[in-house]
Each structure stands twice: as C-alpha cells, then as structure tokens.
Design a protein around this nucleic acid. Structure first.
Lengths: 142, 142
DNA sequence: GTAGTTGCAAAGTGTTTGCAGGCAG
DNA sequence: CTGCCTGCAAACACTTTGCAACTAC
C-alpha cells in the first residue's frame, strides 16, 4: 500500500496530534507510514535500527503507546503476548492468517454489522474490532 | 448464566471430546461450566484451588490448551498478555469493558455481518471474532 | 509394566519501569 | 535552570518447558 504520508510531512502529522516530533518518533512513525503494514514492536525496533542503532527498545514501546493514546495508530490484538500496530487509524477490520501470522486489512466500507444490542447507559463505544481468522484449507484442523 | 453442564456430566463431555477425564481436568471444566464466564488462567487456577490446593499452574495451562485444541472452550484475546477462556464454543461476539476489564457475550444470532470479501482460494475461515470495546462515557478518553 | 498425567520451579517471551544523562527553551 | 526525551538494564506478568513421581489399566 502506498505510504500515507511523505517522510517530510511526518513532523507536522505528529504536531497535529499533540506529539513533539523528535528524531526517534519520526523514525518510528516513518517505519509505520512508509509500509502501511501491521508491525509488532519488535519489527519496528528492527526497522528503525536497520541502518544505525539509534533507538532503544524502551523508546519504541513508549512511543508506540504514545501514538496509540494520541490516536495516531491503532493496536491490533490477534494473539496473546504480541501486539501489532496499525498505521491506519480509520475503522476497518482484519484478516488474520493463522498459519503464517500474516495480518491484512478488510476495508470497513464493504462490511456492515447490524443487530448489535444497544449499549448499557453510561457507556460509549471505543471501537469495534472484527478479526476473521483463516487457515489454509488443506491443513488438518488440529 | 446457567451452567451448561451439571458437574456429573462433565466426565462424559470430556470423553466426547477425546479427553481423558482426570480429577484436575474435571475441576477446571467445572470451574468454567459452572459459571459460564470468561476466566483467565489465573482466575481458573484460583478457583480450582479455592477449597484445597490440588492443581498446579502448569496443569491449568496444559489443560486449557488441551481444551482449546479439542474445541471444548475458546480463547478470547482482548488484551496482550492475558488470555481469557470462554466456555461457550458457539459463534458469538464479545463486549469488552476497558475500564473494568469485564468481558461479556453478545449473542451471535442478534448480529449479522455482511459484506465480508470472499476469501482467497485455499483458505477457510476458522472463526470471526467481533469485539466491541466500550468505556464509561464520563471517563476522559486519555 | 506401560502410557499418560501431574507438579515444581526455572526458563522464556513480550512489555513496563526507574533513574541518570542529554538537548531545547 | 527546568522540563521533556532517551537509553540501559532490571523488573514484571503471563505462559511454557523439562523432568521425575504418580496413577490407572
């Protein structure tokens, strides 16, 4: 998928979300935006240090949490013990390939969900995650 | 919710799923079925040892994995680093309360999802998880 | 006697934290 | 100087593993 932002636009994107654009944060945002893929913290750490080791693990985690809090990216939780980060903050769904661990988007505009019961009063919806888990058809199910 | 099985039925349920019913496995199944709630491994460990410590952590984890493999229960993944186990294996969806960590069922029969794109050939759907994340309306979002 | 099950505790993975140094205003 | 940002490494929570004793048949 085409990058959502050009690299030089990233500082402004961060500012627009109330995030001071530092070198490390720009690198992390660029890693996500240049690929528009779902990346784990581990993958992002590897990517930003690909050319030169300049960002620590702690900073990657801190920054990703900051991005999530500021709604710059979205957490996608498909399996316990590893969080993926999705640079596409718009509502959409996910297809998770159980054999490969590959995670792809399902555009929200093609999908409609109806019949969800009304929320109890005093609650508001933060988001609806739809995860379609698929497997190779020939794999014996277990 | 009413228990799905009576305690004395549990050994047969296990056998029907190809699981040798041992004391610990029956306890763990009973903990799930008597409550029909979403429990974490930690909660199950506490429940089965409530009266007397007779089941180890390893056995709880091993048994839960076995139950999942045998389709007796379902894993529900709502946050990284903690897996919930759902004694209801039928298709249904979940409401996750972000403030309390409380997880409740949404019956599948009231919800319809349409417009999911066709699967690429050679894949089969293992399941569709819908997680509605809610929060107290007055809580400032962060 | 054999095969399967359990328990303990240590190892493992992914994530979070505490504190000191660095840079900007 | 003050405050935010960063890095290191230890701490942390949850889960998995290895091995020996135990149980049932």
């Amino acid at each position: 998928m085409a990058p959502k932002y050009k690299r030089k636009e990233i500082p402004e994107v961060l500012r627009n979300h109330g995030i001071t654009p530092t070198h490390q944060r720009i690198e992390i945002a660029a890693a996500l935006y240049s690929r528009m893929e779902h990346l784990s913290a581990e993958q992002i750490l590897a990517l930003v240090n690909e050319h030169a080791a300049e960002t620590s693990k702690a900073t990657v985690y801190n920054t990703l949490k900051l991005f999530v809090a500021k709604r710059l990216v979205r957490e996608v939780i498909v399996n316990p013990g590893k969080t993926f980060y999705d640079p596409n903050p718009e509502p959409h769904h996910h297809l998770y390939h159980l054999d490969t661990g590959c995670l792809t988007d399902i555009p929200a505009d093609s999908v409609s969900i109806s019949g969800l019961p009304p929320l109890p009063p005093g609650l508001k919806t933060e988001g609806v995650d739809v995860i379609v888990r698929v497997r190779a058809a020939r794999a014996s199910g277990g």
